[in-house]
Nucleic acid binder design. Structure first.
Lengths: 383, 383
DNA sequence: CATCACTGTGGTAACGATGCCACATCCGAT
DNA sequence: ATCGGATGTGGCATCGTTACCACAGTGATG
């Protein structure tokens, strides 16, 4: 006990200084188990015949000498790999982080590992990422695409591709999408149901399936309520919260009749929320705010933001499942596209439009008591 | 033009249906360039002599036939790899997400790619992740460790290891740590400066360098202010927000004299914040709240949370830099540990203790006007 | 008893790249 | 004229693994 510089179970402590010792290969393993490398290979991989007794012996020997198969040699020879590429836009954005987490969990439990590349939303970086995937010979790639080039490259190379969240390249590959139309329609309907008639949509793009779908859902909800479609209430903005903030300010200066605001994603919602606060507007008394995509801050602020939960975890897990199906299922399968049904989470940021209220507000005394906490769906807290 | 089912630049359109065509190897490339594989290899890798004219020809040919070197074969033969493993606890937690993002950005620009494995805070999963890293022959691994087993395994295998955020295994490997003592001392000092004397610390562990350092900083600040160290004010809790919520409730029931609360990380801060709101306490009038680790919701709520910004991006980039230095620098270098200096971000959640105020509060009328937005350090918004 | 299917094992040749060596020039210096 | 170094190229073996084939034994079947 005395003067032990490093605490160690004692089991494998002796090799402390032997740094560059050669790693055991399947040859060493075979020798240790008293059989040939071929048999050792079969014993570990489970392909071909091996006597049960021998298999046990090999596994024990592997444990004993600390044998870990070389994935590079294995991939090279077998022309397959357990690596799956994940190409996303911005892992700092909770949407992408959750997506990646869902993918990683599911794939890890299926025995694959994940190579993550950020593309920062830039097509060149995306192509660069695809090249990386080709270089390491991933057997599949899950992409939130920004252009179709990466998808094409990979599919040309025989890599199983799943487009996640949006599809830029038709139905050439598998895909998992959120039912944006449904979600947007439902949450717009929620506002309509509260009595709103001047509902603005803050949106950054309508070219991808995401933006297009959310716009369509918004329109469908207005149409089915018999409300007029005022094109000036569809407010274009760039993707940054700052841009959204300005856009909202400009809108509210221009159109004081607006009573509800629908931000098409979490970044825009962030900007919109800040804009409303900076203008000193009370939510929902002066203006109702809803968003698409539920992220943590939306349940932390008061009032909480009413939003569309895309079930991003499930989105990720579904992508992973498609990958596994594709790699382990029959080769003939046609491209499949799965849809995630989003759900509306009603919190405190939505209420009847101010014109329907008796006066302008019910007085600030109730401000504190209205601050209720809606924790929302808890992400699994681990460390 | 008419009836073109797939739009394609036309360059390589003819191969639409030829799925299982063989990928070009360096043999094909050599043939296309009219030279030997050896020369092609040298031309691309830059090792050894190649005539400038030939190199250009090879590069052109590679572009032409779409040659991408096989990383598996390359790793196998050269016994090196451009893969770096990143083993973190929970990518859904913005702290880890930012860390991973910083690492990925930096390593990608240095020509490496990143394999991400979540361990969900579980030692077995961590060891499993280390095994994955060994299998794919990563040349380095960056780990936020939960036990020392994975670190040991990898180092034994000759993998360059960087322990990030905390060190469980002495100075055997490189590491990047946040100066927890400094940060905790500074933010506790901020509370002391406001006049607080009964400051509770909400903390989940004190075994790792993180928890131990934050506790030490908290104590140091009290000591240097000549305040008594009341052990009952150090409140242990589990890592989950729910646990923190209960812990805070129990604390406030027991000790109504507490005027300030210091949550040792973002998860505990989340729980603490919810607890205060559910109890209807006003922040900072009734109680001041501070945290360690700045995450997005803290600048979205009002008042914003005064917190210690750990510069997580920089933490990640520094880890990546250590990896690059280690892999590309001289082999003799001793283990180095870098420290990140955190900084206190003062927002609205801290004020003088209630006993120092004239009455109990200054009236709810000012509630709205106090709602100012502090956007905080903007994460780069991309898509 | 011959045949055959099945089980089980080992030998050999790849997978695709590169490190190393041999060799072939060409130049300037001895 | 000869040597030595710098420059440039090709051949060969090899990294660690697995696919494939050959072959041996066993038991069942005609």
């Amino acid at each position: 006990m005395a003067r032990t510089p490093e605490r160690d179970g004692g089991a494998s402590a002796r090799r402390a200084a032997a740094r560059p010792r050669r790693r055991p290969t399947i040859q060493d393993l075979a020798q240790a188990a008293g059989i040939s490398p071929s048999t050792a290979s079969r014993a570990l991989s489970g392909n071909g015949y091996v006597a049960a007794e021998v298999r046990a012996r090999v596994i024990a020997a592997a444990e004993q000498i600390g044998y870990v198969p070389d994935g590079n040699a294995r991939s090279l020879r077998s022309r397959t790999s357990r690596a799956v590429g994940v190409l996303i836009s911005d892992i700092r954005n909770p949407f992408y982080a959750n997506l990646a987490a869902g993918i990683e969990e599911q794939l890890r439990s299926a025995g694959y590992h994940v190579i993550v590349v950020n593309n920062d939303g830039q097509p060149e970086a995306e192509v660069e990422g695809a090249r990386t995937f080709m270089a390491v010979r991933v057997s599949a790639a899950i992409i939130t695409p920004v252009s179709n080039r990466a998808v094409r490259m990979l599919m040309n190379d025989g890599v199983a591709v799943v487009q996640a969240d949006r599809m830029v390249d038709g139905a050439t590959s598998d895909g998992v999408l959120v039912d944006n139309v449904q979600g947007a329609q439902e949450i717009t309907g929620h506002l309509v149901g509260l009595g709103h008639t001047a509902i603005a949509l803050l949106i950054d793009e309508t070219d991808w399936t995401t933006g297009a779908g959310r716009l369509a859902g918004y329109r469908a909800a207005l149409r089915s309520a018999g409300l007029p479609m005022d094109p000036a209430l569809v407010v274009p903005t760039r993707f940054q919260p700052e841009a959204a903030r300005s856009a909202v300010n400009a809108l509210l200066d221009r159109r004081p009749d607006v009573t509800a605001l629908f931000a098409a994603n979490n970044m825009l919602a962030e900007g919109a929320f800040q804009a409303l606060r900076l203008r000193g507007l009370r939510v929902p008394e002066d203006l109702s705010l809803v968003a698409f995509d539920d992220v943590p801050w939306m349940s932390m602020v008061s009032p909480g933001i009413t939003t569309v939960d895309q079930h991003t975890d499930q989105l990720g897990r579904t992508c992973a499942q498609l990958v596994v199906d594709r790699l382990e299922g029959p080769a003939t399968e046609a491209a499949t596209v799965r849809y995630i049904e989003p759900s509306v989470v009603v919190r405190g940021s939505t209420g009847p439009p101010r014109t329907l209220l008796p006066a302008s507000a019910e007085g600030p005394a109730s401000t504190v008591s209205r601050r209720t906490v809606t924790p929302g769906p808890r992400r699994r807290p681990t460390r």
